[in-house]
Design a protein around this nucleic acid. Structure first.
Length: 657
DNA sequence: AGTGCCTGCCC
DNA sequence: ATTCTGC
DNA sequence: GCAGAATGGGCAGGCACT
């Protein structure tokens, strides 16, 4: 397949924000892809060349891409930086230089999807001396063989790992469902207006050569109400009328061979059928984390093949994510009463797998970290009494001297380590706290209620040094939760989790079955002393703001980090990027690429989770998760929080005093 | 050998 | 991680 | 209410440069 075709699809996707339209674009494209190219195309649609669970990386991002542009088109880096700031996206920058060169281009051969894919995979395999140069050559080779600047745009974005086409898991899942299974409609959806006309009429003009099954009850209605349009649909397609109480033969819903469209009379049957298709795709993806496999299975074997993609210890599962609430009452409102309340440990998420002899550990993003935690492997081997399982836990570090739990920063030293692992095992011992179970003795637990999954953990885990079941209570009493919350914080935890007792485990989604509650710190008033221009949807605005506190001794402003969230895009909603940009412009003293220096004048109120020690910023501190609360127009820069105040707050933080 | 910058991934 | 926004 | 796209600090590792 020519890369140009894929680039056109990307471009169409970029030109609409409508999810249904995007889904349709991807689905209609996938329908046309041959089996031997499907794996590659599905990966490239998600902007990758290896599936999410793979540890293969490109080792190339915006920095090296800027160099690649420089090399491929002979442009100096300052000019590239300026264009980058103006266009807000290196993909557009690449496209621009590509189009300037295009007149002199002589086509020998069209660039193929396969070629792009192969070069990207070569890039990810490269290491050692001069490897960066060789990576640049591979990118240059692609850029010089495009037939169209649009292709250059997407080659650059694939290198950066950010396609910006608004397609991620949810949408691709729906698109695969729509591409390889019958498209389901019912009376209301056929009567819905699309571009001014009802959908049935639109379809009668545009759909030809398809196999369409129509509910007998609906057929009568269509003939009576829309006879002319319905006749036109029948004349151009293979329309079969059936009595359909309920589609019991799942395989009928598969395309190739099978049916392309199915029309029901009742909303409920339509919805049920549609969701049966989508959830079978979703389930297959949950099990494999690999849309290439899912798409192939769906195309080839429909429901049967999708159902064969089963949960498998040693293959990581997407983890369930949790929402945030401000108060215990709000949380109860979402998860119901009574609920399970757990400590929210300040560690990192670990998925523990065991098949008979093999234990494997995966992070939240499915990286295999078994090598980094031999201590966890052995404690699991000895203390979990089951042969085959998948469990979810939070790992925290402990201070060798005091026995207290360490803040996340410390344990993070172990996560990506490749060398001196044994030494850090001794220096930073850990405790694993199990809080969920997804598989037991080869059987999936994701559909059993949380309360049962919890019981299962308690039955297989024997607690000991370094291995615990997450501390929890079950209650419907706000006061009891409050006490538990205080207890949790006093141990240095981040807060608490509140969980719905009857909820299933939903891999990969942030549904309201679990809620996290964290305390709020008093906000700081900080001075803006610099900023960066934004990318993508924030192009043209100052988008990230460099913050400083005041040193009353020296009268200087000391930096404490950057902030790029909490700001509104629309000015009606509150303090917006536009407003801040206009406000700060007169104070800009220096510009370099996307970064500007700003004279201290504007004070803002900033919320955060925690103050950390930092070597990067001149105040010696940095904020964990900073976000804008509001402008402080009533404050002068000298009124900002002082470094002494911040130092006091640092010392008084949870579990640290 | 030391340093600085980039990348990817934890939160 | 947090937050905002379109669907 | 969800999915997607913006953005934060800091860690280890790896490459390039001095």
């Amino acid at each position: 397949m020519e890369y140009k075709r894929l680039a056109d699809v990307y471009s169409k996707l970029e030109s609409t924000t409508l999810k249904l339209e995007k889904t349709d674009i991807v689905a209609r494209f996938l329908e046309t892809v041959e089996k031997d190219e499907l794996e590659m195309v599905v990966l490239l649609i998600t902007g990758r060349v290896y599936p999410g669970w793979s540890s293969q990386e490109l080792g190339m991002s915006s920095g090296l891409m800027a160099k690649a542009i420089s090399k491929a088109y002979g442009i100096n880096s300052k000019e590239i930086e300026d264009e980058w700031r103006k266009l807000g996206d290196l993909g557009l920058v690449t496209e621009r230089y590509s189009s300037k060169k295009s007149q002199s281009r002589i086509f020998i051969k069209m660039l193929t999807v396969q070629k792009v894919f192969d070069n990207m995979r070569k890039i990810s395999g490269m290491e050692g001396m001069k490897s960066q140069d060789r990576k640049l050559d591979l990118v240059s080779e692609l850029l010089s063989s495009v037939s169209n600047p649009l292709e250059a745009r997407y080659i650059a974005r694939t290198v950066i790992g950010d396609l910006r086409i608004g397609v991620a898991e949810g949408l691709l899942r729906d698109a695969i469902a729509s591409a390889f299974f019958a498209n389901v409609f019912w009376k209301e959806t056929l009567e819905q207006k699309v571009n001014g006309d009802i959908r049935l009429k639109v379809m009668s003009r545009s759909v030809t050569g398809k196999k369409i099954v129509v509910d007998e009850k609906l057929a009568t209605v269509l003939e009576k109400k829309y006879g002319e349009d319905y006749d036109m649909l029948k004349s151009g397609n293979d329309v079969v009328v059936r009595q359909i109480k309920k589609i019991s033969d799942d395989e009928l819903l598969k395309k190739e061979p099978g049916i392309d469209y199915i029309f029901f009379h009742d909303v409920s049957i339509g919805n049920e059928t549609k969701s049966r298709i989508v959830s079978s795709v979703e389930h297959a993806f949950s099990m494999t984390n690999d849309f290439s496999l899912v798409a192939l299975a769906a195309k080839d074997g429909g429901f049967t093949a999708l159902a064969k993609l089963k949960m498998n210890a040693n293959h990581p599962l997407k983890v369930m994510l949790y929402q945030k609430a401000l108060t215990i009452d709000d949380a109860f409102g979402i998860v119901g009463k009574p609920a399970a309340i757990e400590y929210k440990y300040d560690g990192f998420r670990l998925q523990v797998h065991r098949t008979d002899d093999t234990i494997k550990l995966f992070t939240r993003r499915l990286e295999d970290v078994t090598k980094q935690f031999p201590d966890v492997v052995s404690v699991v081997r000895e203390n979990v009494k089951a042969r085959s399982f998948i469990l979810d836990c939070e790992v925290i570090g402990i201070d060798m001297k005091t026995g207290k739990w360490l803040p996340f920063q410390k344990i993070s030293r172990r996560i990506k380590r490749k060398y001196d692992i044994d030494q850090t095992v001794r220096e930073i011992p850990v405790i694993i706290n199990f809080f969920d179970a997804m598989m037991a003795d080869g059987k999936s637990l994701i559909d059993v209620p949380f309360s049962e999954r919890r019981k299962h953990i308690e039955s297989v885990v024997s607690e000991g040094d370094g291995i615990k079941v997450a501390r929890h209570i079950i209650t419907d009493d706000v006061e009891k939760v409050n006490d538990f919350y205080k207890e949790s914080l006093s141990k240095g935890n981040e807060g608490i989790m509140m969980k719905n007792l009857s909820a299933p485990y939903k891999p990969g989604s942030r549904v309201g079955y679990g809620i996290k509650i964290k305390p709020t710190m008093d906000n700081l008033d900080l001075v803006i002393v610099g900023a960066d221009y934004g990318e993508g949807k924030r192009v043209g605005w100052l988008s990230s703001f460099h913050l400083a506190c005041y040193d009353s001794d020296s009268g200087e402003y000391l930096t404490i980090g950057k902030m790029g969230t909490g700001i509104k895009e629309k000015s009606e909603e509150g303090t917006s990027f536009g407003e801040l940009t206009e406000l700060l412009k007169p104070y800009i003293t220096e510009e370099k690429g996307k970064t500007v220096a700003i004279k201290p004048a504007v004070v803002i109120e900033v919320a955060f989770e925690e103050i950390q020690k930092s070597t990067k910023y001149s105040s010696g501190f940095a904020l964990r998760f900073p976000r804008l609360v509001r402008l402080r127009e009533d404050r002068m820069p000298e009124d900002a929080s002082t470094v002494d105040e911040i130092s006091m707050v640092y010392g008084a933080q949870r579990g640290r005093g």
